[in-house]
């Protein structure tokens, strides 16, 4: 584990010195998995994404579905499957960065997906307004992916008043398909 911590700390330094993607690729390697070249995420990267999405897209009241209830993860994965392989590879590097970051930054030094939800929330709190532009950039990119999967689920639209079904400009067959 010490070696893992050392490598994880290195990955954070990579982020600062070389940029997000190099740091993320490095993190992917030290987390013990082959780097995906097919454009697909590795199973642990999907779990990381699911953990991130459950925190980032947590609702404020019961009328909003949880990401799990509305199929947000599958929607985000579908969104990513529409992207060319190099773009998916960039996103997978960012996911690795999040997965490895608690090992280096603490306070609980385990992989992100091994933190409990409250710890995950606490860990992410500093990212949106971090002094480090790279950290803000990483959070913004992941947040964008998570939000795209969640807020495009029709079951989230009622509570925010968005509505396609009553939009007369949208062709009937598309409205009926929602």
């Amino acid at each position: 584990m010490n070696l893992l911590k050392h490598f994880a700390a290195d990955s954070v330094r990579h982020v600062q010195a070389l940029g997000l993607l190099q740091g993320g690729r490095f993190a992917t390697r030290i987390l013990g998995e082959r780097h995906p070249s097919s454009g697909d995420l590795l199973p642990w990267q999907i779990r990381t994404l699911e953990s991130l999405q459950s925190v980032i897209c947590a609702g404020d009241s019961d009328d909003l579905p949880t990401p799990d209830e509305c199929g947000a993860l599958e929607a985000t994965l579908g969104f990513m499957r529409g992207m060319p392989t190099p773009t998916v590879e960039r996103m997978s590097a960012l996911l690795a960065l999040f997965e490895a970051a608690p090992l280096a930054m603490g306070p609980v030094r385990v992989r992100f997906s091994a933190l409990d939800p409250a710890q995950q929330n606490a860990f992410l709190e500093s990212w949106p307004d971090s002094r480090l532009p790279q950290q803000r950039a990483a959070f913004h990119a992941i947040k964008t992916m998570c939000m795209m999967g969640y807020w495009t689920r029709p079951s989230t639209w009622g509570p925010i008043g968005y509505d396609i079904k009553s939009n007369p400009g949208v062709p009937d067959h598309l409205r009926e398909g929602i």
Partner: peptide, 8 residues
Amino acid sequence: AHPGAAAG
């Protein structure tokens, strides 16, 4: 922006 992008 529609909700998915607006949320970002």
